[in-house]
Write a protein that binds this DNA or RNA. Structure first.
Length: 494
RNA sequence: CGCGGGGUGGAGCAGUCUGGUUAGCUCGGAUGGCUCAUAACCAUCAGGUCGUAGGUUCGAAUCCUACCCCCGCAACCA
């Protein structure tokens, strides 16, 4: 069977609302997917939600709901974001899906040679019914801020996954590039982190402490804990192990993850796969975090940016534009309304929107909308494709704007409006003008092609306007100028 | 000496590996041009001791040494 392409995104915990980090996952995966499809590749694109765990159960109880009813309501928040973003996903998995649960239990059983029972000891808050990290305890002065009670040191029986035994093989896979970590500095960072070996991971909890999860096969007292359940989704969504076809897609070509969860995807996850005797994902695309004015987004500071708000105010392509071009694909980025609105108004409106409009308008005015023979755009796109292949999407889209810019320069240089003054009396001028405008259209169509992965709606509009050979009049303004969060400079001058 | 990333005109970045024309690009600012276009577009100009101090070299943002500053991470966080 021929291997088909497969890309995954991290599944967010439904205990909350979608944030910009989730959006970034979907956006990057979607850009890649559309790019591959444009090149006639078949792609499966997974998204989903993580729905087990104590925090979910607690939230549900708070709302007076059982956990399943609660997650049934909550997961739609994420679905809504994906749809608003135009994410062209093919599979949506919820960890509460019956097939997933069964498949995770199968995985557990297959991994039994690597599973042993041990005792977990740590700081615990009875009020929260949760273990907390030593660091967190220190930060809180050893007292739970919610329950005003000092943490206790307690121990409980857990099953452990012997990731340590697979350390060498995981390291080897990373070093050899069998499982590539992009960008390179994340690979270095991670290898440094595990230089003393992978740690065994606690993968279950006593049922009395964790009721909402996948039951451990053969031990009714234990429930699976977080990561084993969550990571397995990348396989189970394909139908692993019992449904046909998953082998056509596994191993994943790209797994998109945020830098905060790299360690799970580069450590525990490949160890699990090795334990299962499966191939490792080919690439982990590790993106950074989005800061606001140089500061981390956090609820307590109150600077959280809601991706849905951005889309509702400016449109999906404006959102996709900013986050693909101005947030570096492989590093941290910075968002402010100022930056966003400036990029929108200068680059989408003034550069791209305007050039589309002026070309369409000239053809309509001088040639009654008839374009004639459209030559192929001839801009060299080597850098664009190279950047796409290197997963540096920000650089690829930069390249498109270079074209927009040079098209504006070309128009300014040729001055079609000057030529147009003579077309009534001079047939040479008439054909020259036709040639010039057709060339401009060719360039715009090429720009449209290159924008397909990034701004699908805009690309479709550009094609719609020009591709028939007769300009279809633009409905309204291509990208309307917007001043919601900043001051309109025109108002000042008036 | 914990690990990693970074410090380049007002802002954001490229250039550093493989030293060598006037340190490049976008935004912002100023001036001029144009009128097809969304007060858009195009051109020109202003603005940088390339974190600091030494060193190597005919020549350093680029190589070496020391130091200063900023950011992220430091393991069960879904």
């Amino acid at each position: 069977m021929e291997k088909k392409l497969y890309i995954t995104t991290a599944i967010p915990y439904v205990n909350g609302t979608p944030h910009i980090g989730n959006a970034l996952d979907y956006l990057l995966a979607d850009i890649w997917t559309r790019y591959q499809k444009q090149n006639d590749r078949e792609v499966r694109f997974q998204v989903g939600t993580d729905e087990h765990g104590n925090k979910i159960a607690a939230k549900a109880a708070e709302a007076g709901l059982d956990p399943q009813t609660y997650t049934n309501q909550m997961y739609t928040n994420f679905e809504l974001l994906m749809q608003k973003m135009g994410a062209s996903y093919t599979d949506f998995i919820r960890t509460t899906d019956p097939h997933h649960i069964g498949a995770v239990q199968f995985i557990w059983q297959t991994l039994l040679p690597y599973i042993y029972k041990g005792t977990y000891e740590g700081l615990y808050c009875a009020g929260c019914e949760a273990f907390i990290t030593a660091k967190e305890a220190t930060n809180n002065g050893g007292v739970c801020p919610d329950h005003k009670a000092p943490y206790q040191t307690i121990s409980e029986d857990n099953y452990y996954f012997k990731a340590s035994a697979l350390t060498d093989r995981v390291k080897e896979a990373i070093n050899s590039g069998q499982m590539q970590i992009v960008p390179e500095f994340r690979k270095k960072e991670f290898l440094e982190l595990i230089k003393d070996g992978l740690q065994d991971v606690s993968i279950s909890r006593p049922k009395k402490n964790l009721s909402w999860g996948v039951p451990v096969p053969g031990d009714s007292e234990q429930v699976m804990y977080v990561w084993l359940d969550a990571l397995a989704n990348y396989l189970t969504v394909l139908g692993f192990p019992d449904r046909q076809g998953w082998r056509v897609y596994w191993p994943a070509d790209i797994q998109v993850v945020g830098k905060d969860i790299l360690r799970f995807h580069a450590g525990l996850w490949p160890a699990m796969l090795l334990g299962l005797g499966l191939e490792l994902p080919k690439k982990l695309l590790v993106h950074g975090h989005v800061n606001v004015g140089g500061v981390k987004m956090s609820k307590s500071i109150g600077n959280v940016v809601d991706p849905i708000q951005v889309i509702d105010e400016y449109g999906v392509d404006a959102f996709r534009y900013f986050f693909s071009r101005h947030i570096p694909t492989l590093d941290d980025g910075d968002f402010t309304w100022d930056k966003f609105e400036n990029a929108y108004n200068t680059e989408l409106v003034n550069d791209l929107g305007n050039v589309v409009q002026r070309v369409a308008s000239m053809i309509t005015r001088y040639q009654a909308g008839v374009i004639g023979h459209i030559p192929q755009g001839e801009h060299d796109m080597g850098t664009y494709h190279e950047s796409m292949d290197n997963l540096e999407f920000d650089k690829a889209i930069d390249e498109v704007w270079l074209m927009v810019r040079s098209l504006n320069q070309y128009i300014e240089h040729i001055k079609p409006w000057e030529i147009a003054k003579n077309i009534k009396t001079d047939t040479e001028a008439e054909s020259h003008l036709n040639e010039v405008l057709a060339y401009a259209v060719g360039a715009l169509l090429q720009i449209g092609d290159l924008l397909v992965p990034f701004l699908p709606d805009t690309a479709a509009k550009i094609h719609h306007i020009f591709e028939t050979g007769v300009v279809i009049p633009i409905d309204g303004v291509f990208f309307p100028r917007v001043y919601i969060h900043t001051t309109d400079p025109r108002v000042k001058k008036a």
